[in-house]
């Protein structure tokens, strides 16, 4: 059986909120190393890969592999009932029909309990290759959100160009064009504001802003976001969580002209 308890429901609420508009039905694959999810959007443009390691929970117990087939719209409805600071416990039997969720507000001695019906989801597990990216950019997640929102007003796509001088986000649309350039920036006193660019070779790729703004819903999960780019391969956008857990999005580039 599965039993996994989070100190604050916040993490799970934000993670589900960040992916629910991209994918509808997906399996939460549980085993002794944690809870993983991999799902692709219907148009095959974006892939979500989430790993919540066992260490993120206390306690965590899962004796065998359990796939929880969940409709994310339904899960969102249930999670709305959880306070951000409630503890959240997920429980399921070995061959479950339901996922049991318990929210506890210890200060108020209030316990709420929900059973969410599960579904059978036949999902192909795709292999995500280890990629040596040409450019890896670490930047504040709030800054990335601001850039995608601002450029969305100009165009439906953005070109991300990484060079030794910095990273440039630019968009051209009917009303004109705009760009934002960030240079490497490592303030000693404010590590959350760090912009770091690791570059093995310059790279420029174009992406749909609709998807990128969607990914930015994960912003509350992490102060920093990592963008990994290589020519003609999917962009990886990573929100790192404590203890090696993560929420990653892969986005297909727009190729050709």
């Amino acid at each position: 059986m599965l039993e996994a308890r989070l100190d604050t429901a916040n993490l799970f609420k934000s993670a589900v909120d960040a992916i629910k508009d991209l994918v509808q039905d997906c399996n939460f694959d549980c085993n002794d190393s944690g809870i993983a999810l991999q799902a692709m959007d219907n148009s095959h443009v974006a892939l979500v890969s989430m790993m919540l390691k066992a260490e993120a929970f206390s306690p965590f117990r899962c004796d065998r592999n359990i796939a929880l087939g969940v409709n994310l719209t339904s899960l969102t409805k249930v999670l709305r009932a959880a306070g951000r600071d409630d503890t959240l416990t997920l429980k399921a039997e070995d061959a479950p029909d339901v996922l049991n969720l318990v929210f506890e507000a210890t200060a108020q001695d209030r316990i709420s309990e929900y059973d969410l019906k599960l579904m059978d989801i036949d999902q192909e597990h795709l292999g995500i290759p280890d990629t040596e990216y040409a450019a890896t950019i670490s930047m504040p997640s709030a800054e990335f959100k601001r850039i995608t929102t601002d450029l969305m007003a100009m165009s439906e796509s953005v070109t991300i160009e990484a060079t030794k001088d910095g990273v440039k986000f630019s968009s051209t649309g009917d009303i004109g064009n705009g760009s934002i350039t960030l240079r490497q920036h490592t303030p000693v006193d404010k590590p959350n504001e760090t912009v770091e660019i690791e570059l093995s070779e310059p790279v420029a790729l174009t992406f749909s802003l609709k998807y990128l703004t969607n990914f930015c819903k994960a912003q509350p999960l992490s102060n920093q976001v990592k963008l990994c780019l290589s020519a003609e391969v999917p962009l990886m956008v990573e929100y790192g969580l404590e203890g090696g857990s993560y929420l990653r999005f892969y986005l297909a580039p727009k190729i050709g002209d």
Binding site: V45, E232, Y250, A252, K254, I255, G256, D257
Partner: peptide, 14 residues
């Protein structure tokens, strides 16, 4: 017009 890489095929073959 630019086309978008099909991620399904990408991850299936890689």
């Amino acid at each position: 017009a630019p086309f978008q890489l099909d991620l399904y095929n990408y991850f299936l073959t890689s």
